[in-house]
């Protein structure tokens, strides 16, 4: 049987029965976007909404991949089926990407006793240009994993750039990883990561400056008044598996808080609305391109070229066709 010949519903059946190749294939369709991706989104929607979606972000080199791998390994060892979406930037010059994060995720999973690698599914994703495709593809992938019974679903991004921050912030629980050393907290602040954090992790905590980093974060949280959930600050040395259980516990404690306070519904409501908006934007962009390519569009654009019609006037005229 060649997977390439299967329809989306057939692929979903295979995926539900545990065929990991089919899951991989469906993710490709989701990532590509278009009709097949929309079909996956519709078919998985009814089964989704159960998984705890966890975002992990932080500066490059903060140790996010190692931390994610350790978390996934620990969860798999306690019987969870864990999915990870690891996002890395594409080159703006040529669209290519080198996706290397999973090396440090796969390793602890293989090394942890009782962690069945078949209970972990890691997918690397490149940002693929700036068209906002990722903003649709990531929720699509998360929904697919959710519908297939993976829980939690972890989304790992580098905390630079608005797209990445937005994607992480669209999680139920957002973990921001910083490292000791001046500047990291400042960098995180600049990137807007501090406002979105539900949990802070100071990784590489064995290094000098770790307690300073912790104190800086505490001070900053003090400035924020007394919210219902004050983000805990946890110290880890992910590479030596130190402090990982505490992070895992904090993540589930946060989920408990979201449920008790009812905030989970608020967050998911915002997320759903934001996905609608994103999809509408994408839809509009496509319609814009299509309209400009119609006969009427070509005509108006030719007039703009001649200088007989002002661009603003052209846009007004064509907006009627959208």
């Amino acid at each position: 049987m060649s997977l390439r010949d299967l329809t989306v519903p057939e692929l979903l059946d295979e995926a539900r029965s545990g065929d990991r190749r089919a899951i991989g294939r469906l993710l490709t369709l989701v990532e590509r976007g278009g009709e097949a991706a929309d079909q996956v989104a519709k078919l998985t929607h009814p089964d989704a909404g159960k998984a705890h979606v966890v975002g992990i972000t932080g500066a490059p080199g903060a140790g996010k991949s190692t931390l994610t791998g350790r978390l996934a390994a620990g969860l798999a060892a306690t019987g969870h089926r864990v999915a990870v979406v690891a996002i890395d930037p594409s080159s703006p010059l040529n669209g290519g990407a080198i996706l290397g994060d999973r090396i440090r995720m796969d390793e602890p999973i293989h090394a942890t006793e009782g962690a069945d690698p078949n209970n972990v599914f890691i997918r690397s994703m490149a940002t693929r240009g700036q068209s906002g495709g990722l903003a649709v593809a990531v929720p699509g992938a998360v929904r697919l994993f959710d519908a297939l019974g993976f829980d939690p679903v972890i989304v790992e991004t580098v905390g630079v750039g608005q797209i990445e921050v937005d994607i992480t912030a669209a999680s139920d629980t957002t973990v921001v990883v910083v490292t000791p050393g001046w500047g990291d907290a400042v960098q995180a602040n600049k990137a807007g990561l501090l406002e979105v954090a539900d949990i802070f992790v100071v990784n590489k905590a064995e290094r000098p400056g770790a307690s300073d980093a912790r104190r800086d974060l505490e001070l900053m949280l003090d400035l924020g008044g007394h919210p219902a959930w004050r983000p805990p600050i946890l110290m880890t040395t992910a590479v030596d598996n130190v402090g990982i259980d505490e992070v895992s516990t904090a993540i589930s404690t946060h989920l408990g808080h979201l449920r008790e306070s009812g905030e989970i519904d608020t967050r998911r409501g915002v997320r759903a609305r934001s996905e609608v908006a994103t999809r509408l934007h994408a839809f509009l962009l496509t319609r814009v391109d299509e309209t400009m390519a119609t006969t009427e569009g070509e005509q108006v654009l030719a007039d703009v070229d001649d200088g007989t019609v002002a661009p603003v006037e052209a846009a007004h005229r064509l907006s009627n066709y959208i």
Binding site: S65, I98, G100, D101, R104, E107, D240
Partner: peptide, 10 residues
Amino acid sequence: FGTYTEKAIV
């Protein structure tokens, strides 16, 4: 001592 996996720097 544990083992060591290098970071992917390409």
